[in-house]
Design a protein around this nucleic acid. Structure first.
Length: 468
RNA sequence: GGCGGGAUGGCCGAGUGGCUUAGGCAAGGGCCUGCAAAGCCCUGUACGCGGGUUCGAUUCCCGCUCCCGCCUCCA
């Protein structure tokens, strides 16, 4: 398996350190709002790596994904307003327990992942439940002189104590512009150097989500939880760390500095970053106002997995521009494939089409070249030389990587679908109308059946129907 | 100012020094149908701008323009 490593800036051969077990950490959601399809794109990236490892190599995958439910959550005001649970909104406005909010969005995150066929991680540690790990790690960094208590009582990491700072992002400490987006004085308060960052934030006036420590009451900084969790759950060396490209700096740079300063060597063997999903040509973000949620896709009548297929039409290292036309196109292709796969499943069984399997395998291995894999599938779909049974087996196999539920409709026509009330009668009347060549009545009845969710098709042997 | 990624036909999006210049969706034509839908077959339109290298560049080099992202909220 080859993947582009952000740190080495090259495509690297991935071999698990522990021969057949791939260890991976995926930066997870901050659960104070809904995850949008841009966030989900990155999670699908991790899922693709997992599925390739399992399906193509037979490796087991140990994936850990954090749930950030403390920290910068505390002073963020960006909560969803439209279509949200009113109780939740009230809780927020009345300054009720923020953990209620966190748990609500955490549950929603899992639902959205399930809708996109993202396989669950082995663990989803919550930051709020890893405070001990975090405090221990900060203590180690203090002991090793990589951290200090600032003038404001917060604990900071001393960026200049980590010589290879910038290895992932290409940034140089001396070139970073202090306070590029915020007031420099405010940001640097308590720090010795503007690029230092908080490991432990002093509670200040906050009363909720605050823990007591030797440095006083407070809460963890943004980056430290990932170091603490990954070191604890995956060990001092693990294979792959994924995340969105925006996390490359400062989040992953800082995480790397913390982890390596603590253990004294490189912890993450390969950093893999997914590019952004754009909408209207801009990064999808709440603040930009171009957010699309999984439920928005469903509400327009599209299968959420059309979004997953849409991701697959581009490479993970490229930005993609989301349009509803593109989603509609993916949705249509998805339906067509499912219908065909179901039809092929009825044919005599046959072994997989090995030449196509080879093409597919090679595409995935080549830095997750999913567009090329989809081309191979399009070719296979139309290849008359391949028996239907072999097409079925090959599509079923590849779906273990693609995760598109391509076999969803298999066996469906065999099962007797329940007709809605009155539909059987309409069908009988339509059959009589057709026999009498009363096309006007036939069309009216077809419309009525459609509104009941029964799709009628006319063929040489009369009408057939399916229930949607 | 530093760092990272782009600009391909109506839309999305691969890719390549020339060879049949992906694929999907849409569109146009056809088959099928009483008419549709679905399905099937066929068919266009392209490589941001200006130089250079080359027999030949969308692909390599130089310059330019524009776009997106990060520089301590960010997938």
């Amino acid at each position: 398996m080859r993947l582009t490593d952000t740190r080495t800036r090259r495509v690297e051969e991935i071999r698990p350190e522990r021969s057949r077990r791939l260890t991976m950490y995926a930066c997870g959601p901050t659960v104070y709002r809904s995850q949008h399809v841009g966030n989900l794109r990155t999670f699908v990236l991790g899922d693709l790596i997992s599925r390739c490892a399992e399906t193509l190599h037979g490796w087991s995958v140990e994936l850990v994904q954090n749930i950030t439910d403390v920290g910068h959550l505390a002073d963020d005001t960006g909560i969803e307003l439209a279509g949200e649970d009113k109780l939740l909104l009230a809780a927020r406005e009345e300054n009720r327990d923020p953990f209620e909010i966190a748990r609500f969005y955490e549950a929603q995150f899992h639902e959205d992942c399930a809708a996109l066929n993202i396989k669950p991680a082995a663990r989803y540690p919550r930051a709020s439940e890893c405070i001990e790990l975090i405090v221990d790690l900060i203590s180690r960094l203090m002991d090793k002189q990589h951290a200090y208590v600032g003038a404001d009582g917060s604990v900071y990491f001393d960026a200049r104590s980590f010589p290879s700072y910038g290895a992932i992002s290409g940034n140089r400490l001396e070139d970073l512009r202090a306070g590029h987006r915020q007031d420099a004085a405010e940001l640097s308060a308590g720090k010795r150097f503007h690029a230092d960052w908080a490991l432990w934030k002093s509670a200040g006036a906050n009363r909720q989500m605050v823990w007591d420590t030797a440095w006083g009451p407070g809460f963890p900084g943004w980056h430290i939880e990932c170091s603490a969790m990954s070191l604890h759950y995956l060990g001092e060396t693990f294979d792959i760390h994924t995340g969105g490209i925006d996390l490359r700096f400062p989040h992953h740079e800082d995480e790397r500095a913390q982890s390596e300063s603590a253990v004294g060597h490189e912890v993450v063997r390969h950093w893999v970053h997914g590019e952004h999903l754009l909408a209207d040509g801009r990064k999808m973000a709440k603040s930009t106002g171009n957010v699309v949620l999984v439920r928005d896709v469903a509400e327009r009548g599209f299968d959420p997995l059309a979004v997953r297929l849409f991701y697959l039409t581009g490479r993970y290292r490229q930005q993609m521009n989301l349009t509803w036309d593109a989603i509609a196109g993916a949705d249509r292709r998805l339906r067509r494939w499912r219908t065909k796969v179901a039809a092929w499943a009825e044919a005599p069984s046959a072994a997989m089409a090995e030449d196509y399997v080879g093409r597919l395998r090679e595409a995935f291995e080549d830095d997750l070249d999913t567009p090329t894999a989809l081309v191979a599938l399009a070719d296979l779909e139309k290849d008359d030389a391949v028996p239907a049974g072999a097409k079925f087996e090959t599509f079923a196999w590849v779906d273990r990587v693609l995760g598109l539920d391509l076999v969803r409709d298999v066996g469906k026509p065999v099962m007797a679908a329940e007709l809605p009330d009155g539909a059987a009668d309409l069908l009988q009347r339509r059959e009589r109308a057709r026999a009498a060549k009363d096309w006007a009545a036939s069309d009216t009845l077809r419309d009525e059946l459609t509104s009941l969710g029964v799709a009628v098709t006319d063929g040489p042997d009369g009408q057939t129907w399916t229930v949607s």
